[in-house]
Every structure is written in C-alpha cells, then in structure tokens.
C-alpha cells in the first residue's frame, strides 16, 4: 500500500501510446465503400451541377448546347426572376410543417402513451400510405379536394367556408397535399422520442405538484424536442424542394414552387444553367435555414 501511494504522489506518467491501434488502416478500409459511394454519387454530380450552373448557351448552337463561361451572374438572374417561387416554396413548406406538427404531435403522443395494445397497429397505419404509390395518393387528393366533391360541398353547406370559395388548384390544395404526404416523416421521429420518455419522469412531475398540462409543458415537451427537430427537418427540407404536389394539386404558374421551375427549366425549356443555379440556391437556402434552426433549438439539448 505504502509503495503504491508513493508512486501516485510522483509526477503523472504520460499515458501510454496505444501501440499500433491508431495507425491501423481498418477504420479507413471500412469507410471506403461509403466514401466511394458518396464520391461517385454525390461529390461528382454536385461539382458537375455547379459547373453547369455557370455555363452559357453556345453561340449559334442548338438548344441544349452550353459552354463553360463561369458566369456567376446566372445566379443573380435566376434569383431575381424566380424569387416569388422561392418564397412560395418556403412559405408552403413552412405552413405544411407547422400543420404536420400540429397533426403529428397529438397522434404520436396518443400512440406512445395511450394506445396500449393498439400501439403497433397504429404505427403500421401511420406508415401504411407508403404502400400505395406517391403519385396515386397525391392524385387522389385532387378528388378529395375537388370543388364539387364531398368535402368542399359539405364545408360550404356548413358555412365553414364561403360559398364562392374554390379549393381545386389552389394554394390550400397544394399545402394540404404536402402536409398529407410528409405527415409520416413528422410522426415517426416524434413517436420515437416520445416513446423513449421514462414514464417515471411524468410521475415525478405530477408528484412535484405539476398538473397534467404543466407536466406536458415542463417535462414531456422539452424531452420530445429531439423528435420535434428531426420531424420538422424531415418534413421541411423535402417539402421545400417538392414539385409533385404543386404540379398535381396546384395550377401553373399561380402555385408553382421552385421545384416546378427547376423541373420545367431542365426538361421542357432545356435551360440547364438556370435550373442548376436554382438547385444550388435552394440547397444553400435550406442549409442556412437548417443551420439557424438547429442553432436556435440548441443541439446540446438534443442528446
């Protein structure tokens, strides 16, 4: 014992270098397939796309032939011309995200805390729409929200909406479609984080003089924040770039989102540089928004 204590009072020996382990190639070899995949299918296309975004039409060339000119003004042109579609995309995606949260949170809460034996069945039902084609489901909403359809006429009959209102091919229909299509992406992460909450924490909250609502506000909701952040990101990011809902449920150009512009620039007008620069601006804008959002939500809290 005495000897041991003497050695401990001496200057601390430097920690031994883990021999061979840090120099091992194994981790890098294991990373290789992933890195190769990302290089071929992400880095290369991104660089190519960036190159395309700086091209100009070849002089005297045919449609669809472009030459590299490093014309950064392509970006200025794209944004000034299509800023309305950009802002519309973010507004629609924002509203749809809020709606999906408003619908998905109670749903996930019910499944996590109140469903009992029905829990797994309800989870399957949340995912069930994926079994049908995305396009078919979106087209189905055209029927559901048709002006002469059951839903709209019922709402008119109940005087919930004015008699002159039209829903077909309106912003409402597009937002409804986006909300519907991305609801599972909101609900599942919410469920995952709610389900993880130790019920004893809720009991402790109630034991410490918190009524049902207070316990929700002070314990349940803060603890479900990782799910809220994940769910809103998984909804907002694809929703902002979505073009199917606006194409099938909206009307052009009144409800066109930036995805529709990119699609038409690429495939119909064959204006690759503009489409590419729009894609890049969209990517940058989403990255910026997500960065600000995560900063605000506090990543430290999300563990």
């Amino acid at each position: 014992m005495a000897i041991a204590s003497v050695t401990h009072t001496g200057p601390a020996a430097p920690p031994p270098v883990p021999a061979g382990r840090s120099r091992s190639l194994t981790p890098y070899l294991l990373l290789l397939p992933g890195i190769a995949w990302l290089t071929i299918f992400f880095v290369v296309p991104i660089v190519t796309l960036f190159g395309t975004s700086l091209q100009v039409p070849a002089e005297g060339g045919e449609t669809g032939v472009f030459v590299q000119a490093f014309r950064f003004a392509n970006y200025v042109d794209a944004v000034t011309e299509y800023w309305a579609q950009f802002s519309r995309s973010f507004v629609y995606a924002g509203i749809a995200t809020v709606l999906a949260l408003a619908i998905g949170y109670p749903l996930a809460y019910m499944i996590a805390f109140k469903a009992g034996r029905l829990r797994n069945l309800l989870l399957v039902l949340v995912v069930a729409p994926f079994f049908a084609s995305f396009i078919l489901r979106t087209i189905a909403w055209r029927q559901i929200l048709a002006d002469e359809g059951f839903v709209v006429s019922s709402l008119k009959w109940l005087h919930v909406i004015p008699q002159t209102a039209t829903v077909t091919a309106s912003a409402v229909a597009v937002v409804a479609g986006i909300t519907y299509n991305f609801l599972p992406f909101m609900t599942l992460p919410l469920y995952a984080s709610l389900e993880r909450i130790d019920p004893r924490l809720l009991e402790a909250g109630s034991d410490l003089y918190g009524n049902g609502f207070t316990v929700f506000r002070k314990v349940t909701f803060p603890l479900s924040l990782p799910g809220v952040v994940a769910g809103t990101l998984l909804t907002f990011i694809p929703a902002a770039g979505d073009y199917v809902n606006a194409a099938l449920l909206g009307r052009q150009p009144g409800t066109a989102m930036i995805g529709n512009v990119v699609e038409s620039r690429f495939f119909r007008i064959v204006d690759y540089p503009t489409a590419a620069s729009l894609s890049f601006v969209l990517m940058a804008a989403i990255l910026l928004l997500v960065f600000l959002y995560i900063r605000k939500a506090g990543t430290e809290e999300l563990v």
Binding site: E203, A204, D207, N211
Partner: peptide, 20 residues
C-alpha cells in the same frame, strides 16, 4: 386526490431526475 394535490413527495427508485 390527484398526486399533485397531496402534501406528499416521493424519492423514486431510479431517482427520475429531469434530464433536461
């Protein structure tokens, strides 16, 4: 009476401290 309306407090088995 509801738990939050009793002058009774509990030290839970695994403490149940609020992690956030």
């Amino acid at each position: 009476a509801k738990p939050y309306k009793r002058p009774v407090n509990t030290v839970f088995q695994n403490y149940a401290l609020f992690p956030h």
